[in-house]
Design a protein around this nucleic acid. Structure first.
Lengths: 111, 111
DNA sequence: CAAACAATATATAAATATATATATTGTTGT
DNA sequence: ACAACAATATATATATTTATATATTGTTTG
């Protein structure tokens, strides 16, 4: 048996896969993806997100809760409103790539 | 109300999100991610994947079935073995980014 | 054609995730 | 302090995914 450095060892690969899948699961939900998409454009409060994305409040709250507990968004309270923003730079990189690959530039957008 | 071009309209955004989430769901499973990772390095047959990743045969077959039905892998039969490879260039781009972001280069690897 | 083996398919129990309704907490302005 | 409103929390039915056991299909070689 060859336990030397011919390939990345399986355990290490598994570890990386577990971490990566954690991130991917966060993104693999339409509401959360839309939320992160919108937040990648800049900070938004919940009522803005509700209006801009057409996601109803309880769903919004549940999914923002997921994003908070996973630490991918930061929150800031201002008066009655809580403003959300993307806290993970890596997440922004992934969103940017996904946008480039799958988001149609509506009409002419200087491709 | 302003229905003009101030922002990407919600329906179009939803459509893109639905498609993108479809891709992300494929990736958001540890076994499938490992499979695609390995396949991104080049064509492999099932028994090779089983040995290299330590995934048991039925799981392997089930998850390769998902990848096949989603059209992200291509297959080629050679004798008793079926060789798999990644069929979607976009998938390779995503895998490359994920690798860069989350896969630890073991030991020195010229960063 | 039959044995041996590689791969695929099916079935189902268990675990997760999602949608939706309803209740609670926290902040502001009077 | 209380009314009004923004946000969060909880509960649960439904749907989707995953793990695991078992059966079937297909190919090669004698």
């Amino acid at each position: 048996m060859d336990t030397s450095a011919t390939m990345v060892d399986v355990e290490e690969l598994r570890g990386a896969a577990t971490r990566t899948v954690g991130v991917l699961k966060i993104l693999a939900n339409e509401d959360r993806l839309l939320l992160l998409c919108q937040l990648s454009q800049g900070e938004r409060c919940v009522s803005e997100l509700e209006e801009q994305l057409g996601i109803r409040q309880p769903t919004l709250s549940q999914q923002l809760g997921v994003l908070r507990s996973e630490g991918v968004v930061a929150t800031r309270r201002q008066g009655k409103n809580i403003y959300y923003s993307v806290a993970e730079p890596a997440m922004l990189e992934i969103l940017a790539l996904l946008y480039r690959l799958y988001c149609p530039r509506s009409e002419s957008d200087g491709d």
